[in-house]
Design a protein around this nucleic acid. Structure first.
Lengths: 222, 222
DNA sequence: ACAAAAGTGTTGTCCGTACACCCATGT
DNA sequence: ACATGGGTGTACGGACAACACTTTTGT
């Protein structure tokens, strides 16, 4: 009787040149050898799901110390030609100045803009589609932004992040008003300057841990 | 090397006497023999995740033909004393006039009010807590209500459902205004009367399939 | 005629949105 | 002094929330 195996996959987002990108590996082995895929792999026996995703991500891309949020589990009978594989997918948002390193299972690890992704292995296109939709929700209802922003950052930097993820421009004054109402940030006394113009105040998150703000954002019925 | 197994569990909600209830079984076998637990069991080889949840639910409680929505996957190393078990949890909302039948694995299947649940096996208390939170979101952002309401129903009946799930009273006029704006329902020409008062118009869902209405309900940034 | 639930509109308030100018700096 | 991005306030309109009376029926 064939065994059912558990895998984990990670959809890791970043912003490069004002564009949303996803981390993909090029597969070194069959199936789908030479194709692009999400970093991921099989769960080991004494490993938490999130640990496995963290480990695989590190092994395949060199990326480590990141926050992963469970997205959904994909379990179609035919999704993997090797046999029955159930995959638990995670999403993450990180800054792009980390170094990417390929390893044994992966030929190359690279960022790909979401608007022109190559064809993907397995059912990874479906996973990416779900992840993109979820990211838009996460950015608006949690403090996940603090995973990609540096320790201290300007409000303009933060706004650009939101604009990239949501895929639309936002009004500067309205954005600042709302962000301040959420009370996620605190001002520092430092400023940041780049080029010949007024220096910008730097902000930081008051809580660096992941937290939900759904209660501050109402939905439908009051 | 011990095998990792996949299970599915279902958190099935209903309303009884204006109160939210959950379907629990009493376990017939170890571990947790005699304790209450969510209906569920192991995934078979050529079975979709949702099919497995449907099958287990039917086997253990007699309930069938219901819509299941994936909630989350629980995979702690120590969550099951028998060994490594990863469980994919689903939620459902059904009407309570279905007959409950126990079977081989389950001593009894019964409804339990959410405000006074017994101690549960495994990590099922965590699953139930997550499911309750998710149900409040689902009722406001999808047409899942049509899974529990009969073919035709009165608006008062529907409002009571929302009040029970959200745990608070709603204004009758505002509720009706909003529900009508969502365009999920259509009027029938039939009325329903119970007791000595004005008969109520009956409504039905225009689409009986599960669908999202997140686009009609805005969140945070426009 | 009375009891009991169904059904219906209006108004004030608050929130979301659109919009334009001054500020601080380097060259 | 000028170019560049940083930073701020207000007014309008639409959505939300609060609220009370009339209608239809059975007894």
């Amino acid at each position: 009787m064939p065994e059912i195996k558990i895998a984990v996959d990670a959809v890791v987002f970043t912003i490069i040149d004002n564009g949303l990108n996803i981390l993909l590996i090029e597969r070194k082995k069959e199936p789908y050898k030479g194709k692009f895929a999400l970093p991921g792999g099989f769960l080991e026996n004494n490993e938490e799901l999130e640990e496995a995703a963290t480990r695989e991500l590190h092994e395949e891309t060199g990326v480590k110390d990141i926050f992963l949020k469970q997205l959904k589990t994909y379990g179609s009978v035919k999704r993997d030609p090797r046999g029955r594989v159930i995959s638990v997918a995670f999403i993450a948002l990180i800054n792009s100045d980390r170094e990417l390193v390929a390893s044994s299972d992966a030929l190359r690890a690279n960022w790909h803009p979401t608007h022109s992704l190559p064809e993907l292995a397995f059912d990874h296109e479906v996973i990416v589609k779900d992840a993109l939709a979820q990211l838009k929700i996460e950015i608006q209802t949690t403090n996940i932004a603090c995973q990609i922003l540096p320790e201290r950052f300007t409000l303009t930097k933060m706004q650009k992040l939101y604009e990239n993820i949501l895929g639309k421009e936002l009004d500067k004054r309205n954005f600042r008003k709302k962000i301040k109402e959420l009370e996620l940030l605190k001002e520092t006394k430092e400023t940041f300057m780049e080029g010949a113009h007024r220096p910008a105040l730097l902000y930081e998150f008051s809580n660096k841990g992941y937290s939900d703000i759904k209660d501050k954002v109402h939905v439908f019925l009051k």
